[in-house]
């Protein structure tokens, strides 16, 4: 059941990314390009996605997940520097080529070697992340 729901959810996610144009890096970079030919599409995608998700969070207050277990609790609202530094790094990479993790997976089937190279580097980055995180923590302790 978990796997079927996972596949359905993933399929809807992938379809939504392609339909909305988010696998087209020109549209994503166009949205970030506030001082150039600004493309508003991404704002509609975000806005559209937040509506059903907000309803889902509301519904989750009064039930348990279909497959059992419990819903994820709201993370500790600590705004550490990992959150900020990580997000800045992610934003830079996102701006440089116009890809984030969802769309690069959705375009594995048609994105060619360039998408393959990006995703390989991204996986290497994910593998390196615990190390980077540790160094950040060490440098905080040293202060």
């Amino acid at each position: 059941m978990r796997n079927i729901l996972g596949f359905i959810s993933g399929g809807m996610f992938g379809a939504g990314l392609v339909i909305s144009g988010m696998t087209d890096t020109e549209k994503v970079q166009g949205w970030l390009d506030v001082f150039g030919a600004w493309d508003p599409t991404l704002a509609f995608v975000m806005g559209g996605a937040i509506i059903p998700m907000a309803i889902a969070w509301h519904l989750s207050k009064r039930r348990t997940p279909l497959v059992g277990g419990s819903f994820p609790t709201l993370a500790d609202p600590k705004l550490g520097r990992n959150l900020v530094l990580g997000s800045v790094m992610f934003g830079m990479g996102w701006g440089l080529v116009g890809l984030c993790p969802g769309p690069t997976v959705a375009s594995i089937g048609f994105g060619g070697w360039a998408n393959g190279l990006f995703i390989s580097a991204m996986i290497a980055g994910i593998a390196l992340a615990p190390n980077v995180r540790q160094r950040l923590d060490v440098s905080v302790d040293a202060q």
């Binding site: 978990r2 729901l5 996972g6 359905i8 959810s9 993933g10 399929g11 809807m12 996610f13 379809a15 939504g16 990314l17 392609v18 339909i19 909305s20 144009g21 988010m22 599409t41 991404l42 704002a43 509609f44 995608v45 975000m46 806005g47 559209g48 996605a49 937040i50 509506i51 059903p52 998700m53 309803i55 889902a56 969070w57 519904l59 989750s60 039930r63 348990t64 997940p65 279909l66 497959v67 059992g68 277990g69 419990s70 819903f71 994820p72």
Partner: peptide, 21 residues
Amino acid sequence: MGLMGGLLIGLAGAVYLLGNG
């Protein structure tokens, strides 16, 4: 199309949350 695709992305998130938690 952005709005429609976005709604689908949100529904996907809703299925993953309400279904699998």
